[in-house]
């Protein structure tokens, strides 16, 4: 009888392990937001059910961990070309009305005209991908090659302007309110091209719960990515 009980207990344990491995999902989130990753993590985890959400504040941390851990799903800024091997894009976030992300060139006192930028000028950008990809992104945005200064977080673009280390910085238009609320410098903008997705969710399997949590994230925390419209 004792042996039977022990067997049942072991069986129950194994079932628990198998169940948790079968149904629990891991969602890794990297989006260059003006909101702190710890705050986002705390708020979304409470609403994520049995999906374990990890929010990264820096692309390098995300890239290293996602490559090593291969989570069930990833929510990242950008295009499908950025997705890890073995993952497919399951959901795309666009701006409301199904439009691509709008970018502006932010500067102090004088609006910069991309056509008048010289090779000696420096443009700041958040490195939400490799340096090469970001160099290409900046060139596409301003229509010419420029010296770029990468920063790891959106908020770090402001010191680039404060300390005159860059003549302008490229930001998503949805982040403009953050900069204007934080700084009293005379911040001016030049509209740039609208380009690409706000974010994508890519999965290595079905990961249906993670897709729901990703949608929920933008509902619970509208400030995280701004107002978006999801598309399957």
């Amino acid at each position: 009888m004792n042996v039977l009980n022990r067997g049942l207990r072991v069986g129950a344990c194994l079932l628990t392990i198998v169940t948790s491995q079968t149904f629990a999902e891991n969602l890794y989130v990297y989006y260059p937001s003006t909101q702190k990753s710890n705050v986002v993590q705390q708020k979304i985890q409470g609403a994520a059910g049995d999906v374990t959400v990890t929010v990264f504040g820096k692309y390098s941390d995300f890239a290293m961990k996602a490559t090593a851990d291969k989570p069930d799903a990833v929510l990242v800024k950008g295009e499908k070309t950025q997705v890890l091997p073995g993952y497919t894009v399951a959901q795309t976030a666009l701006r409301s009305g199904g439009t691509p992300e709008k970018y502006v060139l932010l500067s102090v006192d004088k609006a910069l005209v991309p056509g008048e930028l010289t090779a000696a000028m420096t443009i700041g950008v958040v490195d939400y991908n490799s340096r090469e990809v970001m160099q290409g992104f900046v060139s596409a945005m301003i229509g010419k090659t420029a010296k770029i200064k990468n920063v790891t977080k959106v908020e770090d673009l402001l010191p680039l302007l404060t300390f005159q280390m860059a003549q302008g910085v490229i930001i998503a238009e949805s982040d403009l309110a953050f900069f204007k609320s934080k700084s009293t410098q005379n911040l001016v903008t030049t509209p740039l091209k609208s380009f690409g997705n706000v974010a994508i969710v890519a999965t290595k399997g079905a990961a249906g719960k993670s897709l729901q949590v990703a949608k929920k994230l933008t509902e619970i925390m509208p400030g995280f990515m701004g107002s978006v419209q999801w598309k399957n």
Binding site: K58, S60, D127, D156
Partner: peptide, 12 residues
């Protein structure tokens, strides 16, 4: 200081 970001800044 954010030490990891300091490393990134040095890399730049």
């Amino acid at each position: 200081p954010d030490h990891s970001a300091l490393g990134s800044q040095a890399a730049s």
